[in-house]
Write a protein that binds this DNA or RNA. Structure first.
Lengths: 227, 227
DNA sequence: CCAAAAGTGTTGTTGTTACACCCATGC
DNA sequence: GCATGGGTGTAACAACAACACTTTTGG
């Protein structure tokens, strides 16, 4: 059987800033179709690279960014999703830490930028569908896996985590109960350092201990944050 | 850029029988490579069909089966997974009801059969990896979505459900607590009919009310069964 | 009357929610 | 000394886990 289907990868990369909220990385297309539309970074897979390698390469080429967490999201394969010819796309889901987030925000003038998920431009192809799938995944996943930490600095004040959950779950969270619950899991380390971002009392810094988390997970612990 | 990657779909289809446990559907390969090895049903996607259409077509062609639940599982794309040329496979996850399960078990003599997940043959390509991914998904998913019902007859005695969960979670479950919890969700209907499978007291039949389930889900109910 | 499977409640323990005041800093 | 954000405990309530005997049928 003769088959003429092309294979591409696309990445939905999330960044977070306690003031800006959740953003995603988009690039502006140079060529037709959808010239000058904003689109997810991505492109055709090379014959000799794995899917994940392809995503990382494209992110490097198109946005100069290194994601800190990457997982496969879903594959999109409707025959009509690309007007030229059939392309199936394997979409990935990525998270970057604030350091990278800030960095790429500088490249602003070019054709790569962060967009708050609250005010998104029209996207090329079916990228809106892909994006919506990714947002759903992020919202769902944060409740039962501690991936939130991948969006924060290695050392962060507790309030950053708190705000992240409030934004993602889109609801008020009781500060005391939230802290009690997170601390009770035992994979957070409280440091002696403090930081003062704006006014007010300086905050102690915390860090996520991945090793401890995996140990606890082995023992059949299960993380879940529902309020 | 010239790309020569082929796109296929593969299906991991689960069946269940309270006595046999969980089985999956395999076909025996007629041609090289991996001639005479057992493999997941699947094949190349046609240029004008969607991915899901491709899976359903292949399952119909290769096993004469109609799955009752189907979702995308994961895409496997390592460059070396097919010895001939590069093929990326989009794997699907399916569940069939006992009626279909019995039916295909008749076709036994041919090159399609059910295998208990406890004693599997060596599989072609990387199908073992795909299968393991699917089993993990099934185990994980059954705890927070009521997909277990898709593996049972439309009307079933409560003990069938009980056994299904015990097998999948691989642990004893307290019958009273389990029933209390499931009933409390309110999406099961108790019928006036009874059934007697072996010896012992006949059992009342139940059925899953999908509509009620979706209503409850809308209201922000969340199903979860952990013990 | 025995074997086999179905049906059924209560209680102690644990986890979850609701709630408000003081503390450390910069200006 | 005031504005800003950080830090902390307790009590009522809800959910979960542990537990065993009775009922209906067939042989």
């Amino acid at each position: 059987m003769k088959q003429s289907i092309k294979v591409s990868v696309d990445a939905v990369v999330f960044g977070y800033d306690p003031d800006e909220g959740i953003s995603i990385l988009l690039i502006k297309r140079k060529f037709e179709p959808f010239q000058k539309f904003w689109a997810l970074p991505g492109g055709l897979v090379k014959d000799d690279e794995s899917l994940e390698e392809a995503v990382r390469r494209e992110l490097q080429e198109e946005a100069g960014i290194d994601v800190n967490y990457l997982e496969q999201l879903y594959s999109f394969g409707k025959p009509e999703r690309d007007p030229r010819n059939r392309v199936i796309s394997i979409a990935y889901f990525g998270l970057v830490r604030p350091a990278d987030y800030q960095l790429s925000a500088q490249t602003d003038a070019e054709d790569v930028a962060w967009f708050s998920i609250k005010k998104l431009p029209r996207l090329a192809f079916d990228h809106k569908v892909i994006l919506d799938t990714a947002i759903k995944r992020l919202r769902g996943k944060i409740a039962y896996e501690p991936i939130g930490f991948e969006l924060l600095d290695k050392k962060f004040p507790f309030s950053d985590l708190e705000k992240l959950y409030q934004i993602l779950l889109d609801q008020e969270i009781d500060r005391r109960n939230f802290k009690k619950k997170i601390i009770s899991y035992g994979f957070l380390e409280e440091l002696d350092e403090v930081i003062q971002k704006k006014s007010g009392r300086p905050a102690r810094l915390f860090q996520f201990n991945k090793k401890k988390y995996f140990e606890l997970k082995e023992k059949g612990y299960n993380f879940d944050i529902f309020f």
